[in-house]
């Protein structure tokens, strides 16, 4: 399989690094930026997308056309695996009306993390639905805030009505090892999915 290379298939150009991305989704204030920051080798960077772009679906512009300077911020981090492989992490914008940005982010994504907070589990429903519908492999990671009650992963799986194959784990988004383990779970899950449906993934 050839990918991540220049389309020209140049003859002498050195091999270009392959880039991959994992999305970090979840409700408002659930710890997305914190998780990206704790594993990223760079301080999370911020990009902005202007909502006046012609590429937007017409519907998504309703109600914002008057405010021509509306922007959506996305933050992202980077993990260089080696010279030839770089993993980017993107925190998705939380607001539902920015779905169209998710579509762009989700295109070609290796997988996703859905961060959840047991005090507001319902805030992760939208992200779960989104990735389920698109067949994007994801892990649900419950960010253990200090003042939130702890539940076993299986209780959370039931509460979220998740398929048994979807990994559910507890994490602390502030801790590098914990955030790293969540990412490993996503990639392992993506690998299992690929093995199960090799033809039409």
């Amino acid at each position: 399989m050839v990918f991540g290379r220049s389309k020209r298939g140049g003859t002498t150009a050195p091999a270009e690094p392959v880039t991959l991305k994992i999305l970090v989704a979840g409700g408002f204030g659930v710890g997305k930026t914190t998780l990206v920051g704790s594993v990223s080798e760079i301080k999370p960077l911020r990009t902005e997308e202007l909502l006046t772009e012609a590429s937007l679906p017409v519907d998504s512009l309703k109600g914002v056309e008057a405010k021509s300077t509306t922007t959506v911020a996305m933050d992202f981090g980077r993990i260089t695996i080696n010279d030839g492989l770089v993993l980017y992490l993107f925190g998705t914008p939380g607001q539902d009306r920015f779905w169209f940005l998710w579509d762009e982010l989700a295109t070609g994504a290796l997988g996703a993390v859905v961060l959840a907070d047991t005090r507001r589990l319902e805030n992760s429903f939208a992200a779960i639905d989104y990735f389920e519908r698109r067949g994007i492999p994801f892990t649900v990671a419950v960010n253990c805030f200090d003042d939130a009650e702890r539940y076993p992963a299986e209780t959370i799986r039931e509460a979220l009505d998740l398929d048994g194959a979807i990994p559910v784990m507890l994490c602390d988004a502030r801790v590098r090892e914990s955030a790293r383990d969540v990412l490993i779970s996503v990639v392992e899950h993506a690998m299992r999915n690929a093995a199960r449906a090799p033809a039409d993934m």
């Binding site: 399989m1 991540g4 295109t107 070609g108």
Partner: peptide, 10 residues
């Protein structure tokens, strides 16, 4: 570079 095309896993 062109990243992995959609609907294709590395």
């Amino acid at each position: 570079t062109r990243p992995v095309p959609p609907a294709e896993l590395p």
